[in-house]
Design a protein around this nucleic acid. Structure first.
Length: 426
RNA sequence: GGAGAGGUGGCAGAGCGGUUGAUUGCACCGGUCUUGAAAACCGGCGUGGUAGCAGUACCACCGAGGGUUCGAAUCCCUCCCUCUCCGCCA
C-alpha cells in the first residue's frame, strides 16, 4: 500500500510516478475522498467530544446524588447524530482503503523506463552456453527416456499442469533443495524456516496477493485458507504487527516450500513440460531491513541467488525489469534468467525484489528507529534462491549427453552419494 | 469431537458500569548520589488519527466485530485464538 499521507497531500506526484508503469490515478476521486473524509471526521470528533463532556457531567452529578433525568434527556438525540456520523465515516474509510489497496507500488528512480518485457535491461551475463555436437533434447524428452518424469499420470491423478517425478529425478530435485538450503543458511547466513503452506486472507493481503490477485490463488473456501503461491507469503508475514529493535535487523530467512498457482491468465503458454506448473518447489530468500540499506540488500540478495547458478555452473543473465513489467508490490526487481539449450533462450529462474515499505505498511511491520526513537515502517525484500523445478530442467538440459544421460553438477554429487551421472540404463 | 478456564501496555499482573489510557512490579530511558559500577531515590516511558507554524488540544484503541447504556476494559451476542482434562489421530 502506498503512503496515505502522500496520496492525500500530493496525489499529483503519485499519479506521475504510477504513470511510468502505465497506471492512471483518478485524481478527482482522490481529492473528493480527502475533502469528504476531513469533513466527516471533524464532525464525528466534535460530536464525540460533546458526548464525553455530557457523560462526565452526568457521572459527577450522580455521584453528588443529584437528579439526572433532565441531563439524560438533553443528550438523547446526540447519540443518534453521532451514530450516523460514525457510520458515514466508516463507509467512506472502507471505500478509500479498497481504492488504495488496488494501487501498485511506485517504481524506484533507478528502474528503467519501459512498457513491457521487451524494454527490460540486461545488466550482466555469466557463463557461456555449451555447444552441443548433437541436437539437444528438451527436459520432457530427457525425462521420458529416464522414465522418471510423467505428465500423463499426473493428469490422471490431478489435472493438467502437474507432474510426477520418480527415481533419479525425484532425488535430483531433493538434492537441489538441500544444496540451496545449505548454501543460504550456512554460507550466506539466512535462518532456515519451516512454515504453513496454507495461510489466511490477512496474510495474503499483507504481502499484496489480495485483494487484487485472488484469481491466481488456490482457495479452500470451507476453511477460509489459501494455498501459498510462494514462501514469501508466510515468511514475510512473520513480521506482521511486529516492532523490531535496530539490532534485530536485518532479519534474513531462507525457506523451502511447494508453491501453488492457478496460472489463470496463462492458458496455452508454456504448456509443454515443467516450466509452468500448478505446483512447484522453490527455495525463497526473505529479508526485513532498515529502510536506508534496502537497496544495498537487494544487490546482496540477488548475488546470493546468483551464487547458486554459478556453483551449478549454469549460464545465466541478470535483467533489470522496466517500470511497465514490475510486479504489483515491487519498487525494483532483478530477474535471473537461465540458459535453456532446447529453447536457445534465457528463461526466468529467479526474481529478486525490493518492496520498500509497500508490504510493511499493509503488514504493520516496523522497527524502532534509534534516531527518532519511534516505530517506523521497515523495508521488505525477497528473491527466489532458486525456483527448484526450473533449476532441475536447466541442469537436465545443460548437462545432457548424446545418449540421453545427464551429468551431475560437481556441487550436487555429495548429495547423490557420489553419483556423477544419471543414465537411462541405470 | 466432549468438558472447563482464559485473552488488558515490552513482560508479569490489577481493575469487572462513571473523573481509568488504564493500580502495581519488572524491563527500558534520563537525572541525583558514587572514583566507577551496583543499590537507593527522583523523573520519564504505548499506538494510530484530526486540527494548528508551534506549544498544545481533541478523538480512537484493554483478542476481533456487533449490541445494551447518557456513559463499557467492565454487561450481552457472534467469531478468532490460547491453556487444562478426556476421546481420536500421523
Amino acid at each position: 500500500m502506498l503512503d496515505p499521507y502522500l496520496l492525500r497531500a500530493d496525489p499529483e506526484s503519485v499519479a506521475h510516478s504510477l504513470s511510468s508503469r502505465g497506471v492512471v490515478l483518478d485524481l478527482a476521486r482522490c481529492r473528493d475522498f480527502e475533502i469528504r473524509r476531513r469533513q466527516l471526521q471533524m464532525e464525528t470528533q466534535e460530536l464525540q467530544t460533546l458526548r464525553n463532556l455530557h457523560s462526565k457531567n452526568i457521572g459527577a452529578a450522580k455521584a453528588r446524588g443529584e437528579d439526572i433525568t433532565a441531563a439524560k434527556a438533553e443528550v438523547a438525540t446526540l447519540g443518534d447524530r453521532l451514530k450516523t456520523a460514525e457510520q458515514a465515516l466508516d463507509v467512506l474509510q472502507a471505500e478509500i482503503e479498497s481504492f488504495a489497496l488496488m494501487l501498485p507500488n511506485v517504481p524506484h528512480s533507478s528502474v528503467p523506463y519501459g512498457r513491457d518485457e521487451s524494454d527490460n535491461v540486461e545488466v550482466s551475463r555469466w557463463g557461456t552456453a555449451r555447444t552441443f555436437p548433437f541436437i539437444p533434447r528438451d527436459h520432457v524428452d530427457l525425462g521420458a527416456r529416464l522414465k522418471a518424469m510423467d505428465f500423463e499420470v499426473a493428469t490422471t491423478i490431478a489435472a493438467s499442469r502437474f507432474v510426477v517425478l520418480s527415481g533419479p529425478l525425484a532425488r535430483l530435485q531433493r538434492a537441489l533443495i538441500q544444496f540451496m538450503l545449505d548454501t543460504h543458511s550456512v554460507a550466506h547466513g539466512y535462518r532456515e524456516m519451516y512454515v504453513p503452506f496454507l495461510v489466511n486472507a490477512a496474510s495474503m493481503r499483507g504481502t499484496g496477493q489480495l485483494p487484487k490477485f485472488k484469481e491466481d490463488l488456490f482457495e479452500i473456501p470451507t476453511q477460509g485458507l489459501y494455498l501459498i503461491p510462494t514462501a514469501e507469503v508466510p515468511v514475510t508475514n512473520l513480521a506482521r504487527d511486529r516492532i523490531f529493535s535496530a539490532e534485530e535487523l536485518p532479519q534474513r530467512f531462507v525457506c523451502h516450500t511447494p508453491c501453488f498457482r492457478s496460472e489463470a491468465g496463462s492458458y496455452g503458454r508454456d504448456t509443454r513440460g515443467m516450466i509452468r506448473q500448478h505446483q512447484f518447489e522453490k527455495v525463497e530468500l526473505v529479508q526485513m531491513v532498515a529502510p536506508q540499506e534496502s537497496y544495498a540488500r537487494l544487490e546482496e540478495l540477488t548475488g546470493h541467488a546468483e551464487s547458486i547458478l554459478q556453483q551449478l555452473e549454469l549460464p545465466y543473465r541478470k535483467v533489470a525489469l522496466c517500470a511497465g513489467d514490475l510486479g504489483f508490490s515491487a519498487a525494483k526487481t532483478y530477474d535471473l534468467e537461465v540458459w535453456l539449450p532446447s529453447q536457445e533462450t534465457y528463461r526466468e529462474i529467479s526474481s529478486c525484489s525490493n518492496f520498500e515499505d509497500f508490504q510493511a505498511r499493509r503488514l504493520m511491520a516496523r522497527w524502532r528507529n534509534p534516531e527518532t526513537g519511534k516505530p517506523e515502517l521497515l523495508h521488505t525484500l525477497n528473491g527466489s534462491g532458486l525456483a527448484v523445478g526450473r533449476t532441475l530442467i536447466a541442469v537436465m538440459e545443460n548437462y545432457q549427453e548424446a545418449d540421453g544421460s545427464i551429468g551431475v553438477p560437481a556441487v550436487l554429487q555429495a548429495y547423490l552419494g557420489g553419483q556423477t551421472t544419471i543414465s537411462p540404463a541405470g
